[in-house]
């Protein structure tokens, strides 16, 4: 039986770094290449999916992240599954692409502060030099040997997605490392 409860992470505040659990969030994985796929997404989300690698696009409600040439992650605050149902019925059911609810698969952790990227660099092979200067950039990489998706939402503020089963371990690592940055 899937554990529907989110892990209980207490906020942490360190010099130049603040970390908190950013849940509940609805997260939807989208895959597709067909023309109809893009038209339907545009209509339902009122957003154009980012085609350029390592970027994202957002409107008032939704954030869409580029994951690969035919794969995106959509996320937004709340627990409203209506959007998922719309997308599923309009795209998956008609075979224009695939729509999967991954809300319970990923945990979103918010990290902010002027030392955010020092913290990330301390456990990641990714080069954050240009990433940290570009708002709305996205990357998938490793952090402390764990797969993560990083969305650079505002300057010095990121939303980090980690698989649920790895989230506690990574959270402890982040808390530990933040003390020494």
């Amino acid at each position: 039986m899937l554990n529907q409860e989110y892990p209980k992470f207490e906020k942490g505040s360190f010099e130049g770094i603040e970390i908190s659990l950013s849940e509940p969030n609805v997260k939807i994985n989208l895959r597709g290449k067909k023309k109809e796929f893009f038209t339907k997404i545009g209509k339902i989300l009122s957003i154009i999916l980012p085609i350029e690698p390592n970027t994202s696009s957002s409107n008032q409600q939704y954030n869409t992240l580029w994951l690969s040439p035919d794969e995106w992650l959509v996320y937004f605050n709340g627990e409203d599954r209506q959007l998922f149902n719309n997308l599923f019925n309009e795209i998956s059911k008609l075979n224009f692409g695939s729509v999967v609810d991954v809300s319970n698969q990923w945990i979103c952790i918010n990290i902010k502060g002027n030392k955010t990227f020092d913290l990330l660099s301390s456990g990641s092979p990714f080069n954050y030099e240009s990433f940290k200067k570009t708002k709305n950039s996205v990357t998938q990489t490793l952090l402390n040997h764990t797969d993560v998706i990083i969305h650079h939402k505002e300057i010095n503020e990121i939303n980090l997605f980690v698989r649920r089963s790895f989230s506690e371990d990574l959270w402890l690592w982040i808390k530990d490392s933040a003390r020494f940055i």
Binding site: P53, S68, T141
Partner: peptide, 10 residues
């Protein structure tokens, strides 16, 4: 060819 230059460990 899709994401650009990355470390081999990825």
């Amino acid at each position: 060819p899709y994401c650009g230059e990355r470390d081999q460990s990825e």
